[in-house]
Structures are given as structure tokens and as C-alpha cells.
Design a protein around this nucleic acid. Structure first.
Lengths: 222, 222
DNA sequence: GTTTTCATGTAACCCGTTACATGATTCA
DNA sequence: TGAATCATGTAACGGGTTACATGAAAAC
């Protein structure tokens, strides 16, 4: 009866914390701002909103009547039901933000956490990033091991697929290394230029980076 | 009652086509050879095997009795139930291999198709690769559009997540470009050296490749 | 002889989608 | 006025996992 989805619940709370919204808009934000990784349908979202209301974390407000017709017609298409975070909801979200468990390193869950890093304390950010990284390194270990075991009896395509998959993970590790370094040295990311090494313990053959935009980095979310 | 899983069914058929196996081993192969992307549990696999038997595509054979104890103890841990592909099963798999529908370009489905490219005709391979590529390009379009719309009102982390996601997709497109080029020129992949351009319409800044193993390329499967 | 690993299965549940039903508002 | 989009919802199903139950063979 409850539909406790974890990541959806978290994302909804996080988005509503920024500003109240109705379901339809919420869904779009979910699939763009956070999107790329997940695309929830109404069949998932609306029931979830119900349970969040039932939990006391959200309240439904009647959609703003056409008071101020100009603003309504321009920016905010007048809504039916606007959901607003309650004080308890805010508190609950705060707890979720602070909580670092092994769940938080998994693909989609991690992406959701990352999306709300703006509202997350630095030490929690660090824990999540490092947790994610070691999770990926475990995964790499397994892949390497299994590859070593089965190499030679795999055809070229299968091998290429494996290689491709491993590289994706390796790239994400490098990405995380950069992010962690950024957190550590304090400043905003995305301005590192040529000479950096990050001393990748993952077997990173140092690469050329930092010429064109849209060049470096890697994959996310599964 | 039927559990027609598509990708699992396909993968099982494909693996069993190479050689008969019992469920336990099958699952391991699924999660390594094809793995990285998907990890099926027994709760999924065994029921699926049942339905495949019911469809007449597999037959169960009693696990090899300890005849030839040496071989049994060394390589093939004597099995309980060995599954073997029937003639109809083989035929069915052949059809699945030949079929190219829009499903085939989706993340996990694509990975499964790719894993069996060794048994796929060249023209089908081309169609699948190109279909996948245009699927990804569509996705890029949407991402770029939504990014253009919402830019500036997103914080740095959200933006970084978006950027990272887009780059993953772009990298996969470049990877596909290489594979398609390989298919086109006929030979096996993985020996292209320095001077190649592939004329990437996705913004591919030509990269250095082909020095160390485990270096180039990109992401897969969402 | 006990613990590990191999091996097979099932029932309950979880998370999510599809397809449908419904209606208000905006736009051509 | 009729089509597109906004907006809310639900019932049925789909594909998968978890946790459990069971037992044989191998390794120590």
C-alpha cells in the first residue's frame, strides 16, 4: 500500500524544497534536471505524491485561482494541485540528505544524490563520492578477474563489449577523482586545465585532457 | 504465466546455442560474458528456462552421471539438469537474430544484441549499430534542447551531472562510429592506429588511440 | 565431520510502465 | 469549434529481486 520508492521520493522532496509545484511540472523537472538517467511516468509519480501527503511531508494546495492573470498566463500555467513541502517534510529530506548508506553508491541512487549536492554538506558529499568510487573499483576488480579467467574463449565482439564496459567504469572513476579533488581543494569544479594527474590508483594511464570543451570524463548511472 | 522477458530469453538461447549448460553455469555466463550491464538472479532465470522448455526451444537432459569421473571432477562439475537447444530453438534464435526493431536500440537490449554479433550477419549488425547511433543522437538532441532551455537556473552540480551524462552519450556515439567504420571496411576492429577521423558529426575531436590496452572509447548501456 | 560451493527452485513482494479514463485550458 | 497541450488519476500487468527452502558434492 505504500510505494516507498527511495529515489523518486527523495527527488520529489528535493525538487519541492526549492519551490512548490504541481505534479505535471514536477515530472518534467524530474526527467530533465535530474533526467537523462531516469524518466518517471505519471503512474509512478501521482501515487507517490499521495503517500508523501499521507506521511505528512507534503500538503496539497488548491491551484492558484486566476488572480493576477498576466503572471498566470506567462510563467506559471495555473495549476490544479500544488504540492508544498511541510516543515516535517523538510526535516525528513534533511535526514535523507545526511544519510550515507551503501545504497547511496548505486547507479541511479548516486545520480539522485549528486543532483542535490548543492544542498548537501561538504563532508557528506565527500563520503558519497568516495563511496561511489570504491564501489566502482570493486566492480572493476570483478570485471578484470572474470576477464582474466575467460579471455581467449570469447569472440572479438564479446571482448569489445567487455573492454568498452570496463572503460566506462574507469572513466567514471577518473571523473570522481576530479570531483573529489575539487571538493578537497575547496573551489568549484570545471576549471582544471592541463597539468593534473590525480594519481589514479585505478591504473589510469595519464591522459591528455583539457583542450576542447565536451571532451573529457565519462559515464554515469549504470 | 509466461514471463517473456525478451532480453533474457534471447541471451539464454544465444548462450545455449554455443553449448549446452545447466542453469547455475548459465547464470554466471550471463553475468560475466554479457554481464557488466545486467545481473539476473535465479528467481528470474529458472522460471524462464521452464517457459523455454514449454515452448519447445529447449530440452532438459539429466545431468551427466559420474561416467568418466576424471573429466567430471576437473572441468564440468556434474550437473543436475543440462539444457540443450532444440532444432526449433535454434531456428527461433535465428529469427530473433535477424529481427531488427526499435526495441533493439535500447540500452540493455542493444548490449545483448551486440554480445551475439559473432553469430549475426553483417547487414543486421550494421542496422543495429546505426539504429543505436541514431537513437543516441535523438537523445542528445533532447538533452541539448532541455539544457539550452534551463541553463542558468541550475546549480553547478546539476549542470555537471548533465554535462557528464551528455559526454557519456557522445562517447558512445564515437564508439559506434568506429565500429560502423570497421564493419564497413570489412576487417576486425581493434587495430586502427593513429590517423583516423571517422568524420564525427557529433563533435568528435580526434583523439589519440592505440597505445596501451584499456585506454580508448566510452560508455555503454545507460 | 563440518563448512563451502554447486545446484534448483518458489512465493512474496517491489518498483515501475502501459493503457486507459477524464476533463480543463490554450491556440489555431 | 476543434485540436493540442496541460493536468490528474487508476487498474492491470511486467519484469525483476529477495528471502526462503532444500539438498548434493567438494574441500578442508
Amino acid at each position: 500500500m505504500s510505494r516507498r520508492s527511495g529515489i523518486l521520493e527523495f527527488a520529489v522532496l528535493g525538487l519541492l524544497r526549492e519551490s512548490p509545484m504541481h505534479g505535471y511540472e514536477l515530472r518534467k523537472r524530474l526527467n530533465t534536471s535530474l533526467g537523462v538517467f531516469r524518466a518517471f511516468s505519471y503512474g509512478t509519480l501521482y501515487p507517490c505524491l499521495k503517500t508523501l501527503v499521507a506521511s505528512g511531508w507534503l500538503i496539497e494546495e488548491p491551484g492558484s485561482a486566476p488572480e493576477d492573470a498576466r503572471a498566470a498566463s506567462l510563467a506559471g500555467r495555473r495549476a490544479k494541485i500544488v504540492y508544498r513541502l511541510t516543515a516535517e517534510g523538510k526535516e525528513h529530506f534533511e535526514e535523507l540528505l545526511a544519510h550515507t548508506g551503501p545504497d547511496a553508491w548505486e547507479d541511479e541512487h548516486f545520480a539522485a544524490r549528486f543532483a542535490f549536492f548543492g544542498q548537501t554538506s561538504r563532508d557528506v558529499r565527500m563520503r558519497v563520492l568516495e563511496g561511489r568510487r570504491s564501489r566502482l573499483e570493486e566492480r572493476l576488480e570483478k570485471m578484470r578477474a572474470s576477464l582474466a579467467r575467460t579471455r581467449e574463449r570469447l569472440d572479438d565482439y564479446t571482448l569489445e563489449l567487455q573492454r568498452h564496459g570496463m572503460e566506462s567504469v574507469e572513466r567514471e572513476v577518473r571523473w570522481l577523482n576530479e570531483l573529489i579533488e575539487s571538493e578537497r581543494t575547496g573551489r568549484d569544479m570545471r576549471n582544471a586545465s592541463a597539468p593534473q594527474d590525480t594519481s589514479g590508483e585505478t591504473g589510469g594511464t595519464p591522459r591528455d585532457r583539457g583542450s576542447s570543451r565536451t571532451d573529457p570524463s565519462d559515464d554515469t548511472a549504470k
